[in-house]
Design a protein around this nucleic acid. Structure first.
Length: 276
DNA sequence: AGCCAGGGTCTGC
DNA sequence: GCAGACCATGGC
């Protein structure tokens, strides 16, 4: 990876990276693609406009300091995805998915934001998840720029009532958001400790929260704690497992199963005919 | 119009 | 442990 400062932007030169596949694959909900192909969004209370042209990714109006502190880790630029993909090579299905979505990276999102976002995701579709998250931020998040709001802290939300969340139109998920906010704030569920637990223990810990089952827990662990062995199984992945892996998902792919899962998810959602 | 969505809980076996 | 009803809302 090569980094240079050009006027007010940071330009990164990097092969085998896809900005669109990374930001628009159902792992995060706060970036949107503009008319000219650039993406605008916010993470870690920092607004960002970013675009890709070939192997060049431009972080608009961004300092070196902010890039190094926020975006370099967020986009996981220091993880060797080529090595991860190589570990999948024996499997024809994942290899195919790599060919389609191999430019994707697993973002290092804030643990609380990921947990809360995937609580909202349950039995829901991605456009509506984005809408609810956006209203949540606009109503309770810190204003960081014009019309741009950070993700509200667990502490802020812990003091709210279901009535307060009514305008979100989150439905039955509102009480789950509050339960999560309260247990995280009280450290009944300590997100700092989750980092040190085994995958199984971490899952159990997160599942103390009402509205967090296996799938939501695995999503939080993969996207919020960067546990690349976490393996969320939603309806799409369930179909894929049934169609492609009747004798089970290959052992050798499990250490980075979450990455494989995300490639497959993206692939079959855009090419459902692959499972015809 | 009706099915479905990056599911989970609760109840009854 | 496992199946089935139920949950709010709205995208398509």
């Amino acid at each position: 990876m090569q980094i240079e400062k050009i006027k007010d932007d940071i330009q990164v030169h990097l092969e085998n990276f896809s900005l669109r596949d990374t930001l628009d694959c159902g792992q995060c909900f706060r970036f949107a693609e503009g008319a000219n192909g650039e993406f605008t969004g916010i993470a870690a209370n920092m607004p960002l406009t970013v675009r890709q042209d070939g192997n060049t990714i431009a972080f608009v109006n961004t300092s070196i300091h902010t890039f190094e502190r926020v975006w370099r880790p967020y986009f996981d630029f220091d993880t060797d995805y080529e090595a991860i993909k190589k570990s999948f090579w024996k499997d024809p299905v994942i290899r195919k998915a790599c060919g389609y979505a191999g430019g994707m990276r697993i973002l290092r999102q804030d643990p609380w934001e990921a947990l809360c976002s995937f609580i909202i995701s349950q039995n829901n579709n991605i456009p509506r998840i984005k809408g609810i998250v956006e209203r949540l931020c606009a109503q309770f998040g810190e204003k960081v720029d014009k019309e741009v709001y950070g993700f509200p802290s667990a502490k802020i939300l812990a003091g709210k009532s279901e009535e307060d969340l009514r305008d979100l139109r989150a439905g039955f998920r509102a009480k789950y958001i509050l339960d999560a906010a309260r247990k995280v704030t009280s450290k009944e569920v300590d997100l700092k400790k989750v980092c040190n637990l085994s995958l199984e223990e971490a899952r159990e810990e997160l599942m103390k929260i009402k509205g967090v089952g296996i799938k939501v827990a695995e999503c939080a662990l993969l996207f919020g704690f960067h546990r690349l062995d976490a393996f969320p199984v939603d309806v799409w992945i369930r179909k894929a497992l049934h169609f492609f892996y009747k004798q089970g998902f290959p052992e050798f792919a499990k250490p980075y199963g979450g990455v494989a899962q995300q490639y497959i998810f993206h692939y079959i959602r855009h090419c459902p005919e692959a499972m015809a």
